[in-house]
Amino acid sequence: MGFEFNNETFRNDFTFRNSERAIKRFPFPFDRDDYMYSVNMEPHVPGRPGSVFEHAFDVDEHYLAEMRDRALVLKDDPLRCQSLPHMELAGWDLLELIMESKARDYPHWFELHKTGNRWTWINRPMEIEQTFTFLDPSTLPYGPMEYITRQAQGDFTLQDQRDENLWIEAGMVTTQADWSLDFDIGMSFHEWHAPVPLAHEKGVFDRALKFLLKLQHGAPVRRFNWTMTVDPLLDTSPENYPKWGPTKAEINLDNIGHRQHLRVELQTLWRLPRSNAIAFPIRCYLIKFEELVTQPKWARRLHRVVRDLHPDLAAYKGFLRNRETMVKWLSQFDDGLPTSPGWWPED
């Protein structure tokens, strides 16, 4: 694939960084110079070779480091992975989806061999070889959702569908933008989105729910979301907010380029075949401001988006206190020239 897995950390000494290749393929979420909530969903079809859209589940240079970080989070707080009892079948659906996708898209790293319900899964980067019986949880070291999401980048939630609603009833959540699975588990679609400002009034969630209830197997969709994070910390959980909150007060013009990160979520939605549940992978990508501004179009555009963002959104996304510093620092990279439509880096 032309790259190696980074040996890096997302805590303590924060050695995470993006290679030049990773910067070029970063999923910059703004396709224009301003931002407001919208449903903004599109079919999750294979995209440009080399881009994060090339495959169903992107495996990048941060894979092994992210999986190590996930294991540390779970060791510290097992409540980050929960599944209500009726969601086990959806967990198997998810396991199958991820194993089949990775074995198909990355055959040099992953293999899946099936003899009836007897499956053998090989994950070379993580040095795992596991033979198990599909749909028999006693043959795996964890439940099916936990087993496979300990080997897949990004958070995952599973939504049951009933009573014309979606219910968040299982999840692996260790790289979240400040929401609590432990608190939200069991909620309906509008309930778990309740704290989001402005979007309810715009009817965003009504439309999104209507759309998702009709999501078809084999026709996944995707959208972006984004926020800001100080230091490359994957685990910005509300549980640990007292630990990472103080770092927001440490941002200044000297360190912002290195410590402030744009945090982008590539969210995909998949109808699952047996359970009829919806799988919701939330893949987090981090990029340092100093890495991002190496792409002139993104530098101009991010300056304009942050400068003009509705204050309620800046507050909700948790960077109101550093917004002025961000705008000031980013402004040196904005020469006022127009930007081309779309999110690709080249003008």
Partner: peptide, 10 residues
């Protein structure tokens, strides 16, 4: 689904 916290938004 990110719910980055609105601190002190009463």
């Amino acid at each position: 689904m990110t719910e980055a916290g609105a601190r002190r938004v009463m």
